[in-house]
C-alpha cells in the first residue's frame, strides 16, 4: 500500500512538473492572400471570404496587403461595393490555399466576363539579386514583351491573362518598357529601381488605350529565425525555481512524516 502511494505521489509530482509548460500555438498553418482589382470597367468591390468582409471599397487598381487565412478551402465572393444582401455576387469561387504559401487573388477581365485568377507568390528572396515577374492583366491588349527600352526582352510574349515566372535581375535602376511583341511601346517604365533581396510583381492593368503597371513588392530578404540576443547572465532560470520548489516540497514532506508519526505514536 505504501509503495503504491509513493509511486502515485511520484507520478503526481511528475505531472506537476510538466503542467506549467506553455504550449504556444503556432501559425504554421496559415496562408497569406492579397487581393488585386484589375478589372478596368468594374465598380469598387467588397470581397468576402467565407461570408466575412475582408476587403471593402476596393477600386480598380487597388491592391491589398497580404492577409492571413487558415490553410484549406475558402469561398471567395466579390460584390459591387455595398451591395451584399441586395444583389448577387459578381464572382463566387472556391479557392484552396496551402499553409506557408502566399497568393495574389486578382479580379481580372472586363466586368461582363469578370473572373478570379489566383496565383502563387514567391516568398523566397535571392541573396544579392532582385526577383521580378510580370503579369498581363489588360483585357483586349496584345501579347507583350518587357525589357530595356530598345533592348532585348527580359520577359517575352506574355499574353492576357498570363503571369510569368520570377526572373532574377541584377539590382539597380532600369529604363524598362512594356511593348507589343512587334516593338510598339505601350508603357514607359523608365527609372524602375529593383533592390537586392526583394521580390516584385509587375502587373500591367488598364485598357489597351490607357495601360499602366502596378509594381508590388511580394517579399524581402528575411531570416528564418529570430536573432539570439541573450546569454542568460541576468536571468534566474525556471529550472532553478523547480529545484528550489522541489527542495521545499521534500522538506515539507519530511516534516509532515515526522509530525504525523509523532501524533500517531502519541
Amino acid at each position: 500500500m505504501k509503495k503504491l502511494l509513493s509511486s502515485l505521489a511520484a507520478f503526481v509530482l511528475v505531472l506537476g512538473v510538466f503542467a506549467p509548460a506553455v504550449f504556444a500555438d503556432n501559425h504554421g498553418d496559415m496562408a497569406m492572400v492579397r487581393v488585386l482589382h484589375a478589372s478596368p470597367d468594374a465598380p469598387a468591390v467588397d470581397v468576402y471570404v467565407d461570408g466575412n468582409a475582408v476587403v471593402e471599397g476596393a477600386e480598380f487598381k487597388a491592391a491589398t496587403d497580404y492577409m492571413e487565412l487558415p490553410a484549406g478551402e475558402h469561398t471567395v465572393e466579390i460584390y459591387a461595393a455595398g451591395t451584399k444582401g441586395d444583389q448577387d455576387a459578381v464572382i463566387s469561387a472556391n479557392v484552396t490555399v496551402e499553409a506557408g504559401k502566399a497568393y495574389t487573388a486578382a479580379a481580372i477581365n472586363n466586368l461582363e466576363s469578370l473572373e478570379l485568377k489566383a496565383i502563387e507568390d514567391s516568398m523566397e528572396a535571392t541573396e544579392g539579386m532582385a526577383k521580378v515577374r510580370v503579369g498581363h492583366f489588360i483585357p483586349g491588349a496584345p501579347a507583350v514583351d518587357v525589357g530595356p527600352i530598345g533592348g532585348d526582352a527580359l520577359f517575352a510574349g506574355a499574353e492576357f491573362p498570363m503571369v510569368t515566372d520570377y526572373k532574377e535581375l541584377e539590382p539597380g535602376t532600369y529604363d524598362l518598357e512594356v511593348r507589343t511583341t512587334d516593338g510598339t511601346q505601350l508603357i514607359d517604365l523608365s527609372g524602375t529601381t529593383v533592390e537586392a533581396g526583394k521580390v516584385y510583381s509587375a502587373f500591367a492593368v488598364g485598357t489597351a488605350d490607357s495601360p499602366e503597371v502596378l509594381l508590388l513588392q511580394d517579399s524581402a530578404a528575411m531570416p528564418s529565425e529570430m536573432p539570439e540576443t541573450g546569454f542568460g547572465g541576468t536571468a534566474d532560470s525556471g529550472s532553478n525555481a523547480m529545484m528550489l520548489a522541489a527542495a521545499f516540497g521534500v522538506l515539507a514532506m519530511g516534516a509532515g512524516f515526522i509530525v504525523f508519526r509523532k501524533r500517531s505514536e502519541a
Binding site: A9, A241, V250, A252, G256, F260
Partner: peptide, 22 residues
Amino acid sequence: RRVVYPITLGFLVFVVSFQLLK
C-alpha cells in the same frame, strides 16, 4: 494518514512554491 498527509503536503508545497518562484 501518516503517509497520505505528508505526501499531499509535500506536493502542495512544491506546486505552490514552484508557481511563486517561477
